[in-house]
Design a binder for these strands. Structure first.
Lengths: 204, 204
DNA sequence: GGCACCCCGTGACATCTGTCATGTCCCACC
DNA sequence: GGTGGGACATGACAGATGTCACGGGGTGCC
């Protein structure tokens, strides 16, 4: 019998984080040795506590779980990465895997899968919801360029073209062109719909 | 010493729900006797399991936790109601209290407050985050009329005026007028911003 | 070197949005 | 019975938005 698995838990909502810790605490072979509430605290904590597995929520202040996964993957390649998220957005899955994640779980899944995933990634397996994987493959990659994404993201809360132009140091016309191409690529009819679709797919 | 407190847990994300159950299971005087994932299953489950306290998430399929709270409050007035939510939107707090909730907790709060709130509501106390209560009082009630809210909600994912008119059986002009008044009431400059603000305040 | 693709810009044009004035109908309240 | 307010509508108008055609510059690939 080997020693217990040392887990880091990163999730911004205290109640959920501590509840997940309680859940994992019921397992004999798993120990939650560190908890953080921000994406930009993950790397330091992972190093300081010599963790085996990092469990990362995507939606966090400071840095997203995906960004944090990338950092840990580069700096501490021995640490296994489990990305946990509310939304099963195919785009999220894709970027999580590109960032070096070993497992991708949605919070909709039964709780038992959490401990199971921790054990599996440590055994070298990859854990991905098959339905989600199929969806990610079916819809292909994010068609938007960096700039288009940036403009769309900035437009998400209702800024006008002039405000966008000022904020991004572009001309009004360029902003309109980016939004126009984004609208065409997403096959919708206006920026609001484009934001809505991009968000849903995890492309934003 | 009295018998254990019988709790119903309503939350759509299995992993979070089971984790919260694990957390409450650590308390000697609390027993989670029922779990549901949909708002429209709350009332039946509360009746069937003779629960003392119902713990309700707001964002759920079928019916929101607030709607479910209203049903339980009317049908089973003896059941105490704790509303639990991701977003500390003042508008949510207001409508939860109007629906008869005894406690309002945000998932950002420390996990210990959950069990504490369950015990307090059973003792007849009301539990509300003071900061949130102040915010709710400071910003006043939802200024939008039913129709304005309806139109704004329908416009949220980027539908055009013509589509809104068709969907809501109104004329294009009327839709524009509703959106226009909503925009003025929220003191913003376009519909997208209005959606963004209304959502943030829990008015949508 | 040619080619594709992204970045950034302009100007013209049609359409969509948001505002305003104005009106009717119905309901609630005093 | 008057007054207010919400629901619904129209028409006119300015300004914002989306499309299109057209440029230039840069990078990377064959």
């Amino acid at each position: 019998m080997s020693r217990t698995i040392r887990v880091l838990l990163a999730e911004d909502q205290s109640m959920v984080r501590e509840a997940l810790a309680a859940l994992l605490g019921l397992e004999d072979d798993i120990e939650v040795v560190a908890q953080v509430a921000r994406g930009d605290e993950v790397l330091d904590a992972a190093r300081a506590h010599a963790v085996d597995v990092a469990l990362l929520d995507i939606e966090m202040p400071g840095a997203t779980g995906i960004e944090a996964a990338g950092q840990v993957h580069r700096e501490l390649p021995g640490v296994k990465l489990v990305v946990l998220t509310t939304f099963g957005r195919p785009g999220y899955l894709r970027s999580a895997m590109e960032a070096g994640a070993d497992a991708f779980l949605v919070k909709d899944a039964p709780a038992a899968q959490l401990a199971a995933a921790v054990r599996k990634v440590l055994a070298g397996e990859r854990v991905i919801d098959p339905t989600l994987a199929a969806a990610a493959l079916a819809e292909g990659a994010n068609p938007l360029t960096d700039r288009e994404r940036e403009v769309l993201r900035a437009a998400a809360d209702g800024a006008t073209n002039a405000e966008l132009a000022a904020a991004l140091h572009l001309s009004r016309g360029t902003v309109r062109n980016y939004l126009s191409t984004a609208i065409q690529k997403l096959a919708v009819r206006n920026r609001a719909e484009a934001v809505s679709i991009a968000r849903e797919k995890g492309w934003l």
